[in-house]
Design a protein around this nucleic acid. Sequence first.
DNA 1: ATGACGGTGTGGCACCGA
Length: 260
Amino acid sequence: MKIATWNVNSLNVRLPQVLDWLAANPVAVLGLQELKLTDDKFPHMALEAAGYHSACFGQKTYNGVALLSRPPMRDIVRNLPGFADEQARVISATLETALGEVRLINAYFVNGQAPGSDKFAYKLQWLQALTQWVREQLAAHQHVVLMGDFNVAPEDRDSYDPEGLRGSIHHTPEERAHFQGLLDLGLHDSFRLFEQADNSFSWWDYRMLGFQKNRGLRIDHILISHALRPHAQACHIDRAPRKNKQPSDHTPVVLTLNLP
DNA sequence: ATGACGGTGTGGCACCGA
């Protein structure tokens, strides 16, 4: 059983690539971020034809998240309960697996623009609210997967230029402390459970040949709860879609669990 | 220090992303 996350930067533009990718990578679950479309424009039919149920939470122009899954989902929750937010950033759902219930949380974390900005303050508030939601979900469910575009490079090795970018957005101590705070709730960064190549990134700037020069960041993550850890078999970044003609700036991260 | 690339909106560019 595989679980993947992918920031598609407009599902309108990227739907053909998502369908192609799913055909080649028939994962059980795919979390999408940055749909940039409203729910009435969500391509339920095309995804159903590909064998996926879908639960979406969209908005116009910005943000928007969705969960796709082969088994049906239930108990779908949109955004962070108790945190008033005009931006559509989180969708959670429960899946029935061979292990029993798995609670999925798919999130598009706030970018934050620059330390000291209003957007950065919003990022920190949002991170606090998300942490509370994950804490509650972990209390209610043994098997929890927190996936998405975290907009945080957790460690220096997750950045192409950790010295030059020290203290800048995605690299600040505050953001990294929040990432560590999520781990401290009882989660593991599944990518780091396995040996990985140096300079493994999930996002590259469209400009200045960022991908060709591998000037990227690892900001897309799949975190799993303690109870899932023994079942994790692999986690890898699939760079192939970044080589497509009209690529997203992010590429999928894929977790393999030893479940049917 | 800035912009570079790409998506969206009701545009002739600005805003946002990371």
